[in-house]
Design a protein around this nucleic acid. Structure first.
Lengths: 259, 259
DNA sequence: CGTTGAATTGACACCGTTCAACGACAGTGG
DNA sequence: CCACTGTCGTTGAACGGTGTCAATTCAACG
């Protein structure tokens, strides 16, 4: 008889990595693979707000999984700083560094967070002996790429208020996938300035955009806390279609990857 | 005595795939791996301008390498269409489809082009038996992600004319890496409308931006042909720093990946 | 030589930036 | 308990970049 693994059990068995690919292809991992993932983590380290984990150009010997909190990837172009992606618990934040060796961007803590370090030598072993797990790791980095593409589309087509709405919808969705965030409220360490960096607008205009969302009753963001009565409306306003996040409840075709 | 492989020889030995990772980590591939890559290609197929190779959401059983010509990835958000990336010969265009199974975007021919199809079953074999080559394939998809990030930064920070300049500089650089494009002129199948889609502006404003570049003597783009006297100036204007393209002449640290 | 898609131009409205000032709040130390 | 301080958030007015609409020119091609 196949015992169905409940959320509780997963948390107990894999306290550090149970959120990895949760809501996406985690169901494609067999217990052995989940155990390998958990054992990959060496040191667990806390980060304080704004702390830079990896600097652009540095050669990295390890990658890290985000266990608690939020992180950003940031790049500088023509002097100004901007955020090109956001990470939530369960994300293998800079797995990219494994194949790229040096990164093209900084990886920064947004608020307090906790990460688990994975030595690249361990990943070498996985590549040698675990083709299926390798493919899942690869998949997780392509998920990032898919999100990047959506952000590009968002920046190309939406205007300020819609961009924030889109980000809000995305964060909410991603938090839910890893069992975080409630139905009507989520807590984040984000400031209006950081949101502005992610949306490619000034923080002043971000303030006005948030004002608009508030006035129109679409969403209320105050000092990191996001609240909304009607998420459907928020998503619609931000032209948010979650299919790029490759969640399980999507088209379901990924079952082919299951094994 | 180690025989140095000249460009000529590479072309003869691997007529379909000699451009793959050229200028990046191709030097890290041993002849056996290059041969495997070449043999991965099944059918070779021409595409006509605007032809859609893979449609968003479709389940793909194969991926394709771009042998000649240009291709785009496009997504639709709130009705309008926009281009989220551009590909040049040597790019393993929709390798993403291998791990993702279904894509979040369309893959479209820009102008006439020629592609080589690779069955996913063949890639499965590579994953099982060739960890080093697997890592290089993974690397090539992460290169796309790095370019995505740069585009996000570009959209967040630069204004119209600088955005085009940046794209121009990028295309030029990438073409040079695969032995295409001369010092002062490159030919592309791009229209002002497509450039506009890539820069997130209207084609009308793209026209004005191109006019500005022309007036200021930075670059002259006319019906697909791009000309400039001073590439350094073009790059400076577009705040272009090629390090995100991970070219060989970069920091050189990637040699660690060599083996 | 006519047709067609692409490129070009001008007028005007709107979105977002800039600069400057002010208000709200949390943490700190007296 | 209060005053102090710094960060974050808020607001207004002027300016500039970009979108929109409509009309015109240009280049390629059958």
């Amino acid at each position: 008889m196949l015992k169905r693994c409940t959320g509780e059990e997963e948390r107990d068995l894999y306290p550090l990595t149970w959120r990895f690919l949760k809501g996406r292809l985690r169901h494609a991992m067999v217990p052995r693979e989940k155990a390998i993932m958990e054992e990959l983590i060496g040191e667990v380290r806390p980060l304080s707000d704004g702390e830079i984990l990896v600097r652009r150009g540095e050669v990295a010997g390890s990658s890290s999984m985000l266990i608690e909190g939020f992180m950003l990837r940031a790049i500088d172009l023509s002097g100004r700083r901007s955020a090109v992606s956001l990470h939530v618990p369960g994300d293998f934040v800079d797995l990219h560094a494994y194949a790229l060796k040096r990164l093209d961007h900084d990886v920064v803590a947004s608020g307090e967070c906790k990460i688990g370090l994975v030595d690249h030598l361990r990943l070498d072993e996985v590549l040698q002996t675990e083709p299926h797990l390798t493919r899942l790791l690869w998949f997780s980095t392509l998920l990032d790429a898919a999100i990047h593409r959506e952000w590009i589309g968002k920046l190309e087509q939406l205007q300020a208020a819609q961009r924030v709405a889109h980000i809000f919808a995305e964060i909410w969705y991603r938090l839910n996938m890893v069992d975080l965030g409630s139905e009507k409220v989520i807590r984040t360490p984000l400031t209006q300035a950081v949101l502005a960096q992610m949306c490619g607008i000034t923080s002043i205009h971000m303030n006005r955009a948030l004002g608009q969302l508030r006035r129109e009753g679409i969403a209320d963001f105050r000092r990191g806390t996001l609240y909304t009565e009607d998420r459907t409306r928020l998503e619609a306003f931000g032209a948010f279609d979650p299919s790029y996040l490759y969640g399980d409840e999507g088209l379901g075709v990924q079952d082919e990857l299951s094994r």
